[in-house]
Each structure stands twice: as structure tokens, then as C-alpha cells.
């Protein structure tokens, strides 16, 4: 029983980490909350459903196409909602509102293209449908696959940020955008790459979540934005290991709430943990203390 719950929490934490790592990447560099991240996540899920159910594709080609498309939506989002505001240094409030406007547009377009109902994935298109039995613990293969994918992608992301040229540019921008520009960092190119990576990760999370719960709808992105913000604040804004840690913590808090209290309080758990954290250490578990207090 306990082992089963731990597995559930781990796979839930893997979703949160995938989703939140993109948010935290964008926040770390641009200091903005991207409220369209959940809409991109939703597009990943619905597009993969469309490719599998309506176009008869297999899971992997559908996953690949959806993730690439999410990356492209990410660039478009930056061009439409963030770049014009960045050019006039508009502070953090206008980008919040413009990304929300883009989110409205993306949700409405999804309603037009995919319909407003909750859709089910075709059972024959989904791989990993079996379950792994370890003693009395039942492990759906899909959960195992998601955890593996999540671990691999988090390592890939960490590698990109810490070891590649784009990653070095991203870290330079986090540190100080003006100096980075003077040192020859191509700021716009770096930011574009960052949106591609962040949005593609949201797409991966969307596809897996849609398949795992066997449901997708234009409104599935609403709740996860909020969860994602809780996760990145808990972990420390801008920190990728923080996003993983925050995702796991919130997933464990939620699972514990369901097990020991009631499933009614599940969604409150994230905020209780978050507010306690903010009152004790406002910069998050792994964050620097920049800009938190006066």
C-alpha cells in the first residue's frame, strides 16, 4: 500500500517536474510568469490525440510531431507576447497579461480544431499498456515509461544548461542580461531556443498526461499552470533541480493528503506547503535570495 502510493507520487512528481522545468527556465532568464505554458501543454496532448485517433499514427511519430509543434508554438508565443514588451522593458506585469491573452487564443483555437468535449485516446495506439508486478506493487508500464522519460529529459536539460554553448548563454542572461549582451551573447537567439525547449517539455508532459489519464480537452491546461507556479516557487525560481525537487515535494504532499486526510483536500496541499515555505524561506529550497525581499 505505502509502496504503491510512493510510486504514484513519484510519477505525479515526474509530470510536475517536466511541466515546471520549462516555466522555471523562462522565469530564471526573463523574470516573467508564462501563463500560456498550460495552453501549450494542452496543445501537446490534443495534437497527439488528433494524430493518433484521427490520422491513425503510432504513439511515437505522434509524440515527435506534437513535441516539435509545441516548440514552434513556443517561438510564436515569444514573438507575439513577450518580445515586443521586452524591447521596451515593460516590467513583469504586462507580460503576465499578454501571455494570458495568448493562452485565451490557444484555448479557443483548440476548441475550434478539436472540439470542446473530453476525448479518449485509441487503446491500440498506446504502447506500455501492461502492468509490471513487483510483489504486491502494481506498476503500470506507462508510469514507468514516464518516469524514465522524465529522468532522461531532466538530465538532458541539465546537460544543456550546464555544458553547452546555448546553456552558457542562458546562464549568462540569468546572471546579467546587459553584460551578457556586451560579451557577445546573441540574446534573441538564446531566448528563442529557451522557448523551444521549455514548450517542447510542456508538450512531452501533455502527451504523457493525456495518454496516462486517457483524456484530453481544451481546458486541461487551466489547473496545471497554477500547480506549476507552486512547484517552481517551492523549488526556487529559475532552478531546474529546484523544479524537480519542488515537483516531487508537492506530489508527495498531495499523495499524503489523499492517504491520511481526504481526497477533498488534495488540491489545497500544494498551497499549504507553498505558503509555509514562503513564510520560512521566501527564496525557495534551491533559489538565490535575489529580489524576494525589499
Amino acid at each position: 500500500m505505502i509502496a504503491q502510493q510512493i510510486i504514484n507520487a513519484l510519477s505525479q512528481g515526474a509530470y510536475y517536474a517536466l511541466f515546471a522545468s520549462g516555466l522555471t527556465l523562462i522565469f530564471g532568464v526573463l523574470d516573467i510568469l508564462n501563463l500560456a505554458h498550460g495552453a501549450i501543454f494542452m496543445w501537446g496532448a490534443l495534437m497527439s490525440w488528433f494524430l493518433m485517433a484521427e490520422m491513425g499514427m503510432g504513439f511515437f511519430p505522434a509524440l515527435a510531431i506534437s513535441v516539435v509543434a509545441c516548440g514552434v508554438i513556443g517561438i510564436l508565443l515569444d514573438r507575439a507576447a513577450f518580445k515586443p514588451l521586452r524591447d521596451r522593458a515593460a516590467g513583469h506585469l504586462p507580460p503576465l497579461v499578454s501571455s494570458l491573452a495568448v493562452s485565451f487564443i490557444l484555448v479557443n483555437l483548440a476548441e475550434r480544431f478539436f472540439g470542446t468535449r473530453v476525448v479518449r485516446f485509441p487503446s491500440d495506439a498506446v504502447p506500455f499498456s501492461g502492468t509490471l508486478e513487483l510483489g504486491d506493487v502494481r506498476l503500470p508500464m506507462l508510469q514507468v515509461a514516464l518516469m524514465c522519460v522524465s529522468v532522461v529529459l531532466m538530465f538532458a536539460l541539465w546537460y544543456m544548461v550546464e555544458r553547452t554553448k546555448v546553456g552558457r548563454s542562458i546562464r549568462a542572461l540569468q546572471e546579467n542580461p546587459d553584460v551578457a549582451r556586451l560579451m557577445g551573447v546573441d540574446v534573441e537567439r538564446t531566448i528563442a531556443w529557451m522557448f523551444v525547449v521549455a514548450s517542447a517539455l510542456a508538450g512531452v508532459a501533455g502527451v504523457f498526461l493525456g495518454v496516462a489519464y486517457n483524456s484530453a480537452s481544451p481546458y486541461m491546461g487551466h489547473w496545471i499552470d497554477l500547480k506549476g507556479f507552486a512547484v517552481i516557487i517551492l523549488g526556487g525560481m529559475g532552478s531546474i533541480p529546484g523544479a524537480v525537487l519542488g515537483g516531487l515535494l508537492i506530489a508527495f504532499a498531495e499523495t499524503a493528503t489523499v492517504v491520511y486526510l481526504s481526497s477533498d483536500y488534495r488540491d489545497a496541499a500544494a498551497f499549504v506547503v507553498l505558503m509555509a515555505m514562503l513564510l520560512i524561506k521566501p527564496s525557495g529550497l534551491l533559489g538565490s535570495s535575489r529580489e524576494v525581499r525589499a
Binding site: 522565469f27 523574470d31 510568469l33 503576465l96 521566501p282 524576494v292 525581499r293
Partner: peptide, 11 residues
């Protein structure tokens, strides 16, 4: 209100 910016927003 000790918190600032987006931290305050999310809290």
C-alpha cells in the same frame, strides 16, 4: 506583503 512581484502574486 514582505514578498515581492510574482512571489506576492502567487501567494
Amino acid at each position: 506583503l514582505r514578498l515581492k512581484g510574482v512571489y506576492l502574486a502567487i501567494t
